[in-house]
Design a protein around this nucleic acid. Structure first.
Lengths: 112, 112
DNA sequence: AATTTGCGCAACCAGATAGTTGCATATATT
DNA sequence: AATATATGCAACTATCTGGTTGCGCAAATT
């Protein structure tokens, strides 16, 4: 069973959960009321988010408050890091690359 | 069929493809050689990446060069944006929040 | 012209996933 | 003590996903 953060945020409902819980911890019931989903469906999402470390919980009587562990999102941010400069580069190197390939091929032919 | 960028980068093979193609465009065959996966498996990943706009292609003879459209990754970056300050905040507001809830409940009781 | 190569497409399959339903447990409320 | 509430867990189901296999087509090589 894969259970990494990329997998966790792939689901739109789970992303919505994270957004909803940005400012405050919430209980499963309170969360479920915000969606059309059933409590159990939401609970399953909570479990997945918790298993990958994106949520932590705190029991308060019979209620359980869940809170987002934002630090975990750094992993996504870190993965994006090397690409950040790429999407700022204006130029399109594909054409240049193809031109280079083309030239090499012709050189190879010539040698034969 | 869901086909958004979060779904696309959820798969580790697809993330590896994006990383591999960071510096240069590649053909499906060249890509497949870098993995244990078959050409068809890789081709399927390529299709998914293309469908969500993360790859664009250019035919060169019978070969097809694919290149990452890094700008598309901005969408992920943008989603992370509001959380960025959260993971820098040191303090844990869950305990404060619970204390507040607790106090409110006791006030409610007292009124009765 | 015949063969090889690079590629996409469609059908099929096993395993994962999201959701539902039903049940058990512990804490509040009455 | 009896009931209501908040929650988790397990079983079941439909759908999605990643992979394989087989095929066809177009470009390159012979």
């Amino acid at each position: 069973m894969r259970r990494d953060i990329f997998q966790a945020i792939a689901d739109p409902t789970r992303r919505a959960i994270i957004s909803l819980m940005m400012m405050q911890a919430m209980t499963p019931n309170a969360l479920a009321e915000q969606f059309n989903s059933s409590r159990q469906a939401v609970s399953k999402h909570i479990r997945i988010l918790q298993e990958c470390g994106l949520l932590k919980s705190k029991q308060a009587g019979r209620e359980i408050y869940y809170q987002v562990e934002f630090k975990k999102l750094k992993e996504v941010d870190h993965w994006l890091e090397p690409f950040r400069q790429m999407w700022e580069d204006r130029f399109d190197n594909l054409d240049k690359y193809l031109a280079k390939i083309q030239k090499e091929k012709q050189n190879a032919k010539r040698k034969k």
